[in-house]
């Protein structure tokens, strides 16, 4: 409101209240001859030391500074604080989130590596197992084949032995018959059965 009044206007008002300043040669007195009339002897003090204005200034300062303090502490500062705290919390939260995610990643990677190692071990195990099983089966197979072959071999051998035995049996009969026939022809009379058989057996046993 008071900006409308020009500075020189204020000065004239001041002159009317306190008389001529007179403490500075820069202000020619004749400009304000009219106000000088009742000023005269009493000089206006240097404004900042003019104790007449102290009470008023203190009064208004108390009011306005009190208002400033109230507005600052109750309205303005809590707002700024809210903003700053909000941001600090947000940053804190983001950092915590980043830390958490990093821990999660580390965990995931660790578990991935563990799984990988497990899988590898499992693979090795399975491979060993399969290898073992296969070799065992092969062994079994071979053993079975061998035993079969052995059985067949045994059978063949007994057969051969039988054949040999029967063949040998036939040979005795033939030899007895032949010997009996030879003896009959040589002697002219049938050989005694028992003696021939004994002689054949004796020669066969030899």
């Amino acid at each position: 409101m008071f900006e409308k009044i020009g500075p020189s206007g204020l000065y004239v008002l001041a002159q009317a209240d306190h008389g001529a300043p007179g403490q500075s040669g820069a202000a020619p007195a004749e400009t304000h001859a009219g106000t000088e009339a009742h000023g005269g002897a009493h000089k206006a003090p240097f404004p900042p030391f003019n104790s007449e204005t102290f009470a008023g200034q203190l009064f208004w300062l108390a009011i306005f500074f009190g208002a400033l303090y109230l507005l600052m502490s109750k309205v303005a500062l809590p707002r700024v604080q809210n903003i700053l705290e909000g941001r600090a919390e947000r940053i804190e939260g983001d950092l915590a989130e980043a830390n958490r995610l990093k821990a999660e990643t580390d965990e995931a990677i660790a578990s991935y590596e563990k799984t990988l190692a497990d899988a590898r071990a499992e693979g090795h195990r399975i491979a060993a197992e399969v290898h073992e099983q296969v070799s065992k089966e092969a062994d079994e197979h071979r053993a079975r084949l061998e035993s079969e072959l052995n059985a067949k071999l045994d059978a063949s051998e007994t057969q051969i032995a039988d054949a040999k035995a029967s063949a040998l049996g036939n040979v005795r009969g033939i030899a007895v018959d032949a010997a009996s026939a030879i003896v009959e022809r040589l002697t002219g009379r049938p050989a005694e059965g028992g003696a021939v058989e004994q002689a054949v057996d004796a020669s066969l046993a030899r």
């Binding site: 950092l95 980043a98 830390n99 990093k102 990643t105 580390d106 990677i109």
Partner: peptide
């Protein structure tokens, strides 16, 4: 990238 992240987080804390 994980290494860089770890360093950055440590620096901030």
């Amino acid at each position: 990238r994980r290494e860089r992240l770890a360093q950055e987080l440590k620096r901030r804390s």
